[in-house]
Design a protein around this nucleic acid. Structure first.
Lengths: 202, 202
DNA sequence: CACCACCCTATCCATTTGGATAAGGATAAT
DNA sequence: ATTATCCTTATCCAAATGGATAGGGTGGTG
């Protein structure tokens, strides 16, 4: 009987996942609502066969929380579960050694096959994340203002319009467009919009 | 205690949904694996408070299976559940009288609130379908050439560059840009790129 | 304090884009 | 044979965008 630990601060999600997996009859499931709690369970209960960590739970960070958990997990695969599934985050988790990345939006049968796959030592990533080679290396930091402008661009607004919305001069918007395009390595505003959307910075 | 009927041919999904709802302690849940079976249950068991029909189960059609079910359901709200959530299908189901449309990818808490909402006679549609007024009605048709140009736009290319790639004059590209932008109801090329990607036409 | 990151503004110029209008040619369907 | 659709090109003009350069202002940190 495989032993699984689910750590998620959202009770309903965690309970549902746990109940679902228990109902399969093949798993023993423990639960934790925060990272420290999960760490405690792992240290007490020796070996889990699979550990699932919510990406946005109290105490959780990437990659530190992940590496800490892997360190005490005695080689058990550790996967990240998340509601706000972003390709770049998934990629980051995988490169930090995570065994997989499970969006909460997965349907049950996919979830089950993913878990079985993980238990056998496989790496699981949703296919929608696989085709993103370039994104993680250039994880850029856009300032709040640049994000405001980028949002406007994505809505198809002209600089003049964005300027009115943000209550600044048009030249200022043009500056932000230039800098954020450089940061994103975009060739122009349209390209910047697409890149921003792909990395869902918007 | 609200009585709910779930009809879905995929055992795992149906069982999980049923177990989840039963665990809430507020619902009695019956199950069916095909449309005829669901019809039989409805006719025998008199009144359900809510009926959920899988969009892709044996015997199921839209809108016929839906209207048939509504006809014998004594006014109970009938909602469609589906794994392959397509806005146009959702729109069609709603206009045929469905009380809602539930993608299987919904997370549990959203599902619960949706069910409660449906039980009170409300109409439920995921927000991702609501804010797409243009997508369902005007499922636009772009010509092959327009798609070529749109792809170029999405890659951040300038008209001149696209023209070179497609081996036509720049003016031609400009024309395509204008017409495809009009078709997509986009304000400019950037907006067109975003819309095209959202509707994954690219 | 000096430094740094961020935000705002200005001017000037080249290029790109958006839009109107007109029109020839190819192909497929009625 | 006529129509319809699509692709193509052309000219002309207004507007938006991209880029360079040069400032001033704020707030926080070492």
């Amino acid at each position: 009987m495989a032993r699984i630990l689910i750590a998620d601060d959202h009770d309903l999600v965690r309970e549902t996942l746990a109940a679902f997996m228990r109902d399969m009859g093949q798993f023993t499931v423990d639960q934790a609502a925060a990272l420290p709690e999960a760490v405690k369970l792992i240290e007490e209960n020796a070996a889990y066969d699979l550990i699932l960590l919510d990406y946005t739970m109290p105490g959780m960070t990437l990659p530190d929380g992940l590496t800490q958990t892997m360190g005490i997990g005695k080689g058990a695969p550790v996967a990240i579960i998340s509601g706000t599934a972003s390709p770049s985050v998934a990629k980051g988790a995988l490169s930090a050694g995570a065994a997989g990345f499970l969006p909460k939006t997965m349907n049950p049968e996919t979830l089950l096959s993913a878990i079985k796959h993980l238990l056998q030592g496989g790496i699981y990533t949703p296919q929608t994340f696989l085709d993103t080679p370039s994104k993680t290396e250039a994880r850029v930091h856009l300032t709040p203002r640049e994000l405001d402008v980028l949002r406007g661009i994505c809505e198809g607004k002209a600089n003049k319009e964005i300027a009115r919305d943000l209550d600044v001069q048009e030249v200022t918007v043009k500056l932000h467009v230039k800098t954020l395009s450089r940061k994103l390595q975009a060739r122009n505003r349209t390209h910047a919009a697409m890149i921003g959307r792909d990395q869902n910075l918007i």
